[in-house]
Each structure stands twice: as C-alpha cells, then as structure tokens.
Design a protein around this nucleic acid. Structure first.
Lengths: 218, 218, 218, 218
DNA sequence: AGGTAACCGAGACGGTACGTCACGTCTTCAC
DNA sequence: GTGAAGACGTGACGTACCGTCTCGGTTACCT
C-alpha cells in the first residue's frame, strides 16, 4: 500500500498521450513539476505560480487546464493510478504479505516530508485531491484482496473473511501513528500491525457480515 | 478518544480567567472565535483576519499573541486539554469499552466538517498545531490505558499487554476509513474495529516485547 | 523654475496616452490621484492606500507598477518633465528675466502646502523621488541657460559667464528663505535676489574658471 | 552657519542641567538617543520606540514628556541652541569670513547622511521641528551679523547693508546645491558663493530698503 | 495545403490574506 | 495611589497567491 509511488512511475516514459502535440508535452511538464514541488516543499509549496514556473509554462495555461491545485493533484494521482503495474507482494504467508505491505507504507510515510504526506495533507483541503486519493486507495485495496484470497486458498483463513476490513486493520495503525500521532518511527511497527491483524483474522474478527463470526469456514 | 471536544469544553465556563483583565477577555474571545470558525468553515476558513473580526479584536492583537493560525490552534487545544475531565468509558467489558471509545471518535469524525477534521488538517501545515494535537492525543491514550488495566484486572487480558498498541489498533481504522479513505460512514465500524482489536489482544498480539505473549514463554 | 507645474501640466489633457488600454488609463488615474493628494495633504497624505483608493484602483496594482511612494513621485515628475513645453521668460533684460523666474518659484513655494514642497519633502525620503527631482531641475536650469546667453549676446555679461552658477545664486535664496528658514513671505524677495545675482554677475563673480572675469586677463 | 552642531555639542559633556534628578537624567538619555539615531539612520530611524529603547526608558515616558517625534527634535534643537557658544569666524576680511562660514555649512551637509540633513528632512514633516530649526537659524544669522558689522567698520561695505540678505545670499547656494539639487560636492563652492555674495554686496545689492541702492553710505 | 479552432504566452488587474511596524491610548499591577 | 510595563486599537506597509481578463501569436489538426 505504497502511497508514494503515484507521483513517480510517470516521469520516465511519457509516451502515451504525448502524440507529439504541444499540449501533451505541456501536461507532462506540469505534472512532473507538481511531483517535484511536492517533494521539495509539501503541499504548501504547491502553488500554481510555482508549478507554472517550474514547468516552464505560463500561469494562465495551468489555470486553463487544471483550474486549481486540487485539479493538478487529481490529475497527477489519476495519471499515476492509470499506468501503474503495482501488485501486492507474495511471500507465501499472510503475515509475510501483510508485513511486506506495511513496510511499503512505512517507508513511504517515515521518510520525512514525502509526497505521500503532501498528498494526504492536500486531500484535506481539496475535494478533487481527496477524491483522486480515495480512488487510488480503493484501487490498491482491491488489488490487495489477492493477499487475502491466497490465505483463504491456503486454508489459512475462512472463506468469508472481509478482505477490505482485514487490510484496513493491518495498515491503519501505520497511518495513525506516523501521520496523526506523529510518534517516533518504530521499525517494528509494520510487522506488529500485520501480526495483530492476522491474529484478529484468524480469530474470525473479519468474517463477512452474512456469516456467523467464529464459525470460520471449512 | 474524542478529538472534537477540546474546543467545546471551553466555551461553557467562560467565568474563570476573565478576572476583569482585558487580556484574559481577549484571549477567551479569540479562542471562542477559533472554535466557531472551525465549525463553520473548517480549517480553510480559519484566517487570522476572520478570527480577529469574529472575536471583535484587531488583527495585530492576534498576531502579537499567537503569531499565526498554528499558534491559535495550539492554544485552543492546550486550553482544552488543560481543563478537561474526560475519562474513558467503563462498560464492564473490554469490547464494550473499546466500542464506546470508538463511538466517540466516530461521532466526532463523521459529523461533516468537524472541528476534529479541521484540527487534523491544520496539523499538516503547522508544527505548533501538530505538537499540540500530539500532546492532546498522548494525554487521551494515557487515560485510556485504564481500559486495558481493567481488562487485565478482570483476567481478560495478559498482564503484559501493551495498552497503547491495543488502543491504537482499535481506533486507527476509524481515522483511516473516515479521514483518509473517506468511505461512506458505516455505523457498524466502531464495534467491528473494537472487536477486532480485542480479538487480537486475546490472541496475545500486544504482549509487551520483554514478556512472552499469553505466557507461552521459554 | 517652477516646481509646481509638473503635476498640473498633466491633468488638463487627459486624452493622450489613454488610447483605450486599461493600463494607460490606470496610470493616468493614479498619477492624477497623486497630484490631488499632494495638494490636499502634502507628502504625509501620500500613502499608497490613499492613492489607490482615490484612483479607483487596487492597492496591489500600485505596488506592482510603482513599488512605493517614491516611485509614484518619480513617475509623476518624469511624466511632467516629458511633455512640458516650459521655457524661461524673455523680458529683454537680465534682471527682468531673473526676476520673472524667481517670481515663478516664489509663487510655487509661497502657496501654503504646495506640490513643490511635498515633492521636496519626499525627495528626502525616497531616492527615486530625489533622482527625478534632480533630473527635473537639471532640465529646467539647462533651459534657463538661454537667459544668460541672451544677456551675453546683449553685451550685458562676459562671454565666459557660468550660467548655472548665476542661476543658482539667483534662485537659491528663495528656496532657502521659503523652505528652510520659513520666513514670512516677502513679495520683494524675487526681485532682490535677482538683482543681487545680476550685480554679482556683472562684477564677474561667475566668470568661468578658465577665463578671467570681466575680460581682465591677458 | 553650521547646522550639524546642535545635536553634537551635546553628547560629550552632559554635565550642565543634569542636576542629579531622575527626570534630568532621563531627558539627557533621551536627547542623546535622538542624536545617535539621527546620525545612524536619519529621520526615518527616529521612531519613538527606537528612542525609548536606546535611551533605556519606557515608551510611555517619551510620549508623556515629548508627545511625539517633532517634540523630541524641537527639544534637541532648542537645547543645543541654548548652551552653545558658537560665534562666527573672524578672518579679517569679508570674503574670508563668508568663506569660512560656508565651509562650515559645506562640511556639515556634504558628509553623507548627516544630522543636519536629517533635521532638515524632519522639519518638512514636523511643525515643531520646523519651528525649532527656524529659531536655531535665526539665532545663527543674528550672530553672523557681526561679520557684516566688521566689514562695515572696515569701510568695506556701506553702513546700510542688509546683513541678513547678504548672509542668505552667501549661504543659500550651498543648501540649494547640496540638499535640493544634490549635485556632486564641489569643494570650490563655499568660496565661490562667498565671493559672489561679497561682490553683490559691494555693488550695493543689499542696501537697506530705506536707502537708495548704489548710494552706499558715507 | 491551407484554414481554422484550439491552445499557449504574456501581462495587467481586482482581490484576500499575510505578517510587520510604528503610532498613540488605555489598563493593570506592583510598589 | 500612582506610574512603569505592557496590551490594545489603528493604519499603513510591502508581499504572495489567487483567479480573471484581454490581447496576440502558435500550433495542430482537419478538410
């Protein structure tokens, strides 16, 4: 569940949509500039003026196509979500998969003023950005459902396990501790949160609503 | 673990501290104005100008004493944390306590643009606000340790259970789902998250590091 | 040597330069407002805010184009210096010319809080204004050299007379008495100062350095 | 006619008038601070706050006793005018005396941002300062009348010569050139202006009004 | 190939908020 | 009870971005 990848994965092969046209080139320059500025100074550094200057493009152009900072962020996020081939780790065990996932999140969030942090901060002030971020995460959680399916297939979890709830329980503590509580980074956290979620899952805590909890499938 | 109470817990007893002093009166007016504006328009509505006007006080006075919006929020939070008598619920069971706690959080976060949301948004842009929020939460989690102690006393949990980890696991999904993922509010969420955390705790997932979980030791 | 004309010489023909462009219109409005405010309240009344309001223009626009009050004054002066057709009086005699010149200065300075006074006051606090004022005066003294040339042509003065020195001697007492000493206005002053300067000139006091005064040299 | 002495002649031996009382000490500290600040940053640096801090006195005290910056300057000037023993030079000739006088003025004005310049600048914005400066100069011109008397006694000038007019003619060009026109400092200026004034005087240009010009007295 | 419509560059403007400085008044608290 | 210390109201400063507008000049694409 890496939130830092969206901005990257996009600056290298700008092939698609840049059909030689100036418009496509401008878009690429602007989106790149957004990423750079986010890394450098967080959301507060992400002014339309700065983006335009960084992208070597005129302010007016940015306003014309993206309307405001929220639109910029949404475009960046959606662009990243579009052409990314991320898939959840497959370590052979539920704990292993969850821990690996958490480690990605941890790395993205613990690294000082990361793009992830900036995007999340932005989402509190821009509906567009919030929407795009929600879509991004929804996509990621969807893909991660594979982790749960595999555990079910292994007989490790009951068939009715609510994948989304399990994944949220596993990852939420990382966001909470690192972003909100702002505790000191604790390298053991990813594993412990993964373990706790796995334990709860085995105890049947995420049995789907229409299934009796505790009565974990065959 | 209610993050919305801080601002409110202060407007009711406006008597104290206003012992005739103009300064104290000004402070109270300003802090009240902050609360009102946060509720009305969220963090983005919290400009120094607006606060000053609302408080019937001059702009420069606000700058003199609080320096910026972050300082205002920090003062509000600290003031709230100072004179508040909040204590965790005591329902007689671990699940019950955690669910009640979660319900408070849920109510605070699900209510549209709440003060809590605004404060959290602010914490991403103001170190002072972030610090005050961290202090506030630290205090709350500390008090909530009682919930775990009681469970231990009841023989419900192992003596070495890491209260903070347990509480974070219980509450984090709420913040994650409501603030970050921005899912539709789900009234069952508080209870489910509480249940999952309790299940993990009983499975020994929060055994303190130096102690064997569940006495599984050597 | 009238220092008050610059601002005025510009409000009458408001047609030119306002060729439909908004920028030109704004400039004209602002420069007019400067003149009006200077007359009404002197230099201290010349705040950027007041100018902007008077001109029906936004504060930031003034800052953008003129930076500060000094820039405004410099522009006003330069604009006045640009399109003005002033030329020194020609009365047929040196004393007559100098007296007429002095009378212009006297009228400009004796009239209460004149624009001239305000400009001079401003020049003590704004390098730009000081520069513009210096340029303005240099231009005027240059044109006035004609007065001396004519006297030379009439055989009234030696060919090597230093025009600038003579003119300064003639006009300086007016500025000194009216602006610095702040004596009561004395209507005879222009003539007396002119007479004294002419007398000194005839006595050879302004013979250029390399030439003997009065042609006494070999 | 040195305008820079007022502030200076007062910082070294602060003995007189400071008869031990706290009030007197405070006054001395404040007036000293005014002088220092004027030298350091000109009139714009002369804020009540800065004076108070420099003098080690509370703002309120300054407001109580001097009301504003104008009052401060007036007090400084009057204090300087009170205890100063300045007398005009006596070189044995009119030109010599006038040149020496002019040299004093020149030195005071040519030295970059001098106190003199600051005081004159201040006089444009503070009626009190303007009044005090006028009184100061009136006193100096009065004393300088001795220069003219001596010339008359020597038979160098007519008895009816208007001393004030002569002195103004001699000194005015310095102020005009150095303060208003802001020309490059020209070391020959003091002597030339003195010579021109003396020449005009000998030509009878400053014969008192009630006497026929040219018919210089017996 | 050429014309047209979309797009971009350029720059000014009105506007909101910022954070600062100095002024001059007024209030409070300690002596 | 008074006067120094300090807070406040007030007005101006100069700045940063915002979002809008109007030009004029390219550029891409489509007959």
């Amino acid at each position: 569940m890496d939130t830092s990848t969206p901005a990257s994965g996009h600056s290298e092969p700008p092939a698609r949509r840049r059909t030689g046209g100036r418009s496509a080139r401008v878009r690429a320059q602007v989106l790149d500039a957004v990423g750079v500025l986010l890394v450098e100074g967080g959301y507060d550094a992400l002014t339309v003026d700065a983006v335009a200057e960084r992208a070597g493009v005129h302010r007016t152009t940015v306003y014309r196509r993206w309307r405001d900072v929220g639109g910029l962020l949404a475009d960046v996020l959606d662009a990243a979500a579009a052409d990314d081939t991320w898939s959840p780790p497959d370590t052979g065990s539920l704990e292993g998969d969850l821990t690996a996932l958490n480690q990605e999140v941890y790395d993205a969030l613990a690294a000082g003023p990361s793009v992830s942090t900036a995007l999340i901060a932005a989402s509190f002030r821009s509906p567009e950005a919030a929407g795009a971020l929600a879509r991004f995460w929804a996509d990621r959680y969807e893909r991660c459902a594979a982790v749960v399916s595999r555990a079910v297939a292994r007989g490790d979890l009951g068939a009715a396990t609510d994948a989304h709830a399990l994944l949220v329980t596993a990852t939420a503590p990382l966001y909470h501790v690192l972003l909100l509580l702002r505790d000191e980074p604790d390298p053991g956290l990813p594993r412990r949160a993964a373990t706790a979620a796995a334990a709860a899952a085995r105890a049947g805590a995420f049995a789907a609503r229409d299934t009796a909890p505790g009565g974990a499938g065959p």
